[in-house]
Amino acid sequence: MSQKELQVIQAIEDEALFTFAEFDPEAAERVGYSDYSYWGSTLKIFFKNKTVIFFLILMASLILFATIQPYLPNQKSSTKIHVSPVTGHPLQNQEPSKEHWFGTNVIGQDLWARIWSGTRTSLLIAIIVGIWEVCFGIFIGAIWGYVRQLDAFMTEAYNVINNIPTTILLMLLAYILRPSFRTMVIAMCATGWLGMARFVRNQIVIIRDREYNLASRCLGTPTSRIITKNLLPYLVSVIVMRIALSIPGTIGWEVFLTYIGLGLPIDTPSLGNLLNEGRQVMMAPALRYQLIFPAVVLSVITISFYVLGNAFADASDPRNHY
């Protein structure tokens, strides 16, 4: 303690023993300074992993290809039924060939084009649902976790919503809105945020009473700064991970909904639809390609997202930083 400080303490001693200190950003910065950068370390660790680089390139090229595929030369429409010039009838179940790289399906549509179109549909659904999950889920989760008075009520509401079978909601929605891309997105958004909200709420409950937050609060740090500097960095990393993991989850869910007959209409190709179509011919070995191609593409996508999400979670965990 310097001489000067001692004098200051002496000076205020008579008025009051303790007063609240004014928050001084500079002083705070000085105390907290190190050349450690959270995001820097995270990214450094993330990119150090060779598996990650591999999957990152794989995923990026998949997404890129799925996006630009229709604009490439010599690509076929995903819904056009190819007709044999000889008989005038649809070219059904053509095995992979020069003309149809992945063959054709049971009514003569090009499987290659359908798989990429399906990938776009499924990814788009997954991304929209993922973003919604994040926005709405975090919003609800934050309120739930931070506002103590609401906790009991929200927990009850969560239990209720969580126990209503999704199938009922989906059937009602499909009945009211008719099966379509929009209906699918609405249906998944309607229930998808629940897990996220609970997750965020639990994280906030755990973190908000941690010692360093308590200390920050005692030091007079404003709530906004606690949230942005103390809570969010921790949350953002896990949230990014949740989004990455929610994409394979949503795709799996779409597959399930298609399986129980509540999926997209079949003239909109999606990975779930393609898989379901493939499943119906799987017992014929010569036609199994109709199941295997979509299954492989779907697996590559879900595995890449899953691996990247987990690697990111590891990288973003400060305990792994050095």
């Binding site: 394979p248 795709i251 799996g252 399930f256 779907l298 697996s299």
Partner: peptide
């Protein structure tokens, strides 16, 4: 672990049975 967690159950269960 990655495979089972990432790939939808419908896909691998089907192939196992098949």
């Amino acid at each position: 672990v990655v495979f089972i967690n990432a790939v939808p159950a419908a896909v691998y269960l089907l192939f196992i049975q098949l």
